[in-house]
Amino acid sequence: MRQTISTIIFDLGAVLIDWNPRHLYRKIFSSEEEMEAFLRDVCTSDWNEVQDEGRSLEEGTNLLIKSFPQHETNIRAYYGRWEEMLGGEIEGTKNILQQLKESGQYKLYALTNWSNETFPIAWAIYPSLHWFDGIVVSGKEKIRKPDHAFYQLLLNRYQVPAAQALFIDDNIRNVIAAREFGIDSILFENSHQLKNELEKRSIIV
């Protein structure tokens, strides 16, 4: 029988914090097509995730410039103007998090793939990040989702039984990994859908 949920674990980027490199690169490129090609072929998600796993921003930037010297200015903008990729807190999710916090019924944690060099910027800007009982940042731990060891690290650190946890993430890869690990999970699409999923589980009313 399923145990009662006592702990809720949030992803942060695109779930609570509107981080998207397009917020920056729409200012730089004259067309969506050019921007999407750059993000697909040059400053890719896979490249960024290595920084999320602990590689320094300087090293990641320099390696990419060696491969794409013609794009040096735009590559340097990725972390040089990183704060411009932040679109604010996602209000619907923020409201849900606040409701959960005020209920006092759940431990609230975040498990995020995020560079340890850029996370302090968001930490200083967004009050909602301070509502968690703990945040595990991949760049600090040198490991990231979907590695099962990253999930285990949070469970061990905060003494959370997997069967009593609920995980929320916008990346299906990370949700599948959590489910494989025995953690009930919600694939985040938007705040309204998240609210519905939490209502189905009688976590919020």
Rank of each mutant, 00 (worst) to 15 (best):
Q99T: 13
K200I: 08
I135C: 15
Q51T: 10
S128L: 13
L198K: 01
L86W: 11
L86A: 11
E33C: 09
C43I: 03
Y126Q: 12
P127L: 05
C43K: 05
I28S: 05
H148F: 13
A77N: 07
Y79K: 08
R81V: 10
V175I: 00
I125S: 13
R22C: 05
R81K: 15
F68A: 05
R173H: 06
N113D: 08
H71N: 13
R201N: 05
S30L: 06
G134F: 15
F150P: 01
P146M: 12
L100N: 03
D18V: 04
N196H: 10
H192T: 08
R22A: 10
L39I: 04
I75E: 04
V160D: 03
T118S: 11
H148I: 15
S138A: 14
D169I: 02
M1C: 00
E84R: 10
N196A: 08
S202F: 09
D169H: 04
K145W: 12
I65G: 09
E34N: 15
K195L: 14
N196E: 06
S115G: 08
D11T: 02
E32S: 10
I172S: 05
T112G: 04
L153I: 13
S202D: 06
K94Q: 12
D41G: 01
L97N: 07
F132V: 15
V136G: 13
I28P: 00
Y25M: 04
L86V: 06
R55N: 02
P120M: 04
Q152A: 15
S31A: 11
L153F: 11
D52G: 00
